[in-house]
């Protein structure tokens, strides 16, 4: 087991690096898959591990998209004038300007989204259960509506960003795939460590019985704010990258897409299994593959089918794949075996 684990991770990493060459025609879909993975993993930080089911994490995706774009533009041009021209072509970016703007934009997106989560959290973390879900949903919808009225960032038209330098579009696809992959892998490594800390145990306590956790003197609010801010940091960066990948985006359907991506991430996590490290990843892959495969055969009924999928998942399959596995194969989940009374008699280590 101890030798297998590094081998497994190395093989996985090699696969991630090779994937866009194994299936070159699916490069864009693979990049999108990473968005799903990142959003699902971060959603699970609060939803699965902390018991705070947000329906508004998409807010950070949209905000990140706008922040990264605005910063990327602002280092070269006046943003108000730029957005007014609606990408009229007179605005040229050199390669350095493009990449520098994107880099600064992504950093700003991450940091500012973490800040937004911190501030919003002060307001929303007093809400429990369904109120929190509705409050976050409201915040996300409000953000989309406000941005679509904000002419400085292009209003309802959105923003058109410069295209990726060079003529070979495949390069752009590869670039964005690897950018997402790097964020995703870093997030995974981070969470693997994060979930082993005392901090993570504390947020699990909040999930299981927040009143008890408060009575035990945990800094519940502070821990909730930190967790959501970290999640928002990664979501913001993912949103920022998406903006550059999409080139053109608008507020309601692309950036703050509350009822699409905003809810998909929840479904991914439920499909895979809440509150586990791998559940969200597996769920995201499952969901994305099913969606891509069936999409074209559904003849306009895709969105209805997706709504139905949400309902069915929630009603019939809420434990997700990992939860189901844990039920049928408890011995696969190491420590659970210890729960069996006959093992208890063994001395510790």
């Amino acid at each position: 087991m101890t030798i297998l684990r590094p081998i497994f991770y190395l093989a996985l990493l090699a696969f991630i690096v090779a994937a866009p060459f194994i299936a070159p025609e699916f490069r864009t879909q693979l990049a999108t898959l990473w968005i799903f993975i990142i959003l699902s993993m971060t959603w699970d930080m609060t939803g699965g591990q902390m018991g705070y089911n947000s329906l508004g994490n998409i807010l950070f995706y949209g905000a990140g998209m706008y922040i990264a774009a605005v910063v990327g533009i602002a280092i070269v041009y006046n943003v108000g004038e730029y957005t007014n021209a609606a990408g009229g072509g007179i605005y040229k970016f050199t390669d350095t300007q493009y990449f520098l703007g994107m880099a600064l934009g992504l950093v700003a997106a991450g940091v500012l989204c973490a800040g937004i989560a911190w501030i919003l959290g002060y307001l929303l973390f007093g809400l429990r259960g369904p109120y929190f879900a509705i409050g976050t949903l409201g915040a996300a919808i409000a953000a989309g509506e406000l941005v679509s009225n904000w002419e400085w960032v292009g209003g309802g038209q959105g923003i058109a960003l410069p295209v990726y330098p060079g003529d070979d579009y495949e390069n752009a696809k590869l670039f964005f795939y690897y950018l997402f992959a790097i964020v995703g892998v870093i997030l995974f490594i981070f969470l693997r460590w994060f979930y082993s800390t005392r901090f993570a145990a504390a947020i699990n306590a909040i999930r299981d019985d927040e009143e008890k956790a408060e009575a035990m003197g945990l800094h519940t609010l502070r821990y909730k704010l930190i967790t959501w801010s970290i999640a928002a940091f990664f979501v913001g960066i993912a949103g920022g990258i998406s903006g550059y990948q999409l080139i053109h985006f608008e507020p309601l359907e692309t950036a703050f897409q509350t009822i699409n991506l905003g809810i998909f991430m929840v479904v991914c996590v439920l499909l895979g299994g809440k509150g586990t490290l791998w559940g969200p990843i597996i769920g995201a892959i499952l969901f994305h593959v099913v969606k891509e495969v069936t999409w074209n055969y559904l003849l306009g009924w895709q969105w209805v089918a997706l709504g139905a999928l949400i309902v069915i998942t929630v009603v019939y399959f809420q434990d997700g794949l990992m939860g189901w596995l844990a039920r049928v194969k408890p011995e696969w989940f190491g420590e659970r075996v210890m729960e069996k009374p006959d093992m208890v008699a063994e001395p510790a280590e």
Binding site: N53, L55, G129, A133, I263, W301, W303, V304, I310
Partner: peptide, 22 residues
């Protein structure tokens, strides 16, 4: 739990809206 009913009805909301749209 309450999130279940909330999410289930959210799924329904999406379905209804999309069916009406079609």
């Amino acid at each position: 739990d309450l999130f279940t009913s909330l999410l289930a009805t959210f799924g329904l909301a999406i379905m209804f809206a999309q069916i009406l749209n079609l």
